[in-house]
Design a protein around this nucleic acid. Structure first.
Ligand SMILES: [Mn+2]
Ligand SMILES: [Mn+2]
Ligand SMILES: [Zn+2]
Ligand SMILES: [Zn+2]
Lengths: 134, 134
DNA sequence: TGCTACCTGAGAACGGTTCTCATGGTGCGA
DNA sequence: TCGCACCATGAGAACCGTTCTCAGGTAGCA
């Protein structure tokens, strides 16, 4: 059992207050900005633990691991804004079945899958349109 | 237009001789092993160029970028062995449509998607079974 | 309250990737 | 074919996100 420290709770809380995916460093900077003196290594450790326990989702983008608070116990995927990181949880039942079937057809066992949809969220789409018309 | 150098050609050839996804460093070691004196930075540059031009696919696994020769011009995905890196190109037409629809439903524009299926290939599945029964 | 195993944090170390810059070769024009 | 300008190359340094180290601190338990 993990000990309860104010540092871990601070990370959990900061993550849950964040809309989209954030990096460990950004979360650490955000915590420091509010006066918290949590260490960077602790933020990394807390995020890794949260991800392992299923309380956070993670993905890698441009060499950086990004994290997001996650509704535990439910397998799901994400629709993520490339510009601001905002994410929507989506179910992908047809894709789950397709992935299992594809693996089986080729004799692959213990299938897992990575499915992420990226795009520009409505807000960022609007901004992009303005910029384009300048 | 990129210049034609024996280094770039060597990288292209080494990549096409490789069954599955390989890292830049592994490909460099392989080239060095055959007597080629290509530099590591050049391998990185050549692989980045090939990926950009659509002649190579890439994915990130455990903090490392992996590359694979790709049949150009065709959008496809991969079924990849977690153990040995062997990959099978798969089409995912139902997933393409699903991804576009999900993005549209949430007002996201310019959708892209990341879809990879991982598993153990038949050979590695057999090896894993032997190990497990020891 | 006291004990102890575990957590924390500053900085060092790590590993993959990119950058620097002197050197060398490609492609092109003459 | 020859010469030149410009781009590619490669060794090593720099970079950057992440993990490790270890001394000091603290949660949890009796
Ligand atoms: Mn899924
Ligand atoms: Mn696709
Ligand atoms: Zn956005
Ligand atoms: Zn395999």
């Amino acid at each position: 059992m993990k000990r309860n420290t104010w540092q871990r709770e601070a990370v959990r809380e900061a993550l849950s207050r964040t809309e989209g995916f954030v990096s460990a460093q950004a979360l650490h900077a955000s915590l420091r900005g509010t006066g918290s003196e949590v260490g960077l290594a602790t933020v990394y450790r807390a995020l890794a633990d949260l991800a392992q326990e299923g309380e956070a989702d993670s993905l890698v983008q441009e060499g950086e691991s990004l994290y997001r608070a996650c509704t535990p116990g439910s397998h799901h995927h994400h629709l993520i804004c490339r510009s601001c990181g905002t994410a929507v949880e989506i179910s992908a039942d047809p894709v789950e079945a397709w992935a299992r079937q594809v693996a089986a057809e080729h004799g692959f066992t213990r299938p897992e899958h990575v499915v992420d949809v990226f795009g520009l969220c409505p807000e960022c789409s609007a901004s992009a349109d303005e910029t384009a018309s300048d």
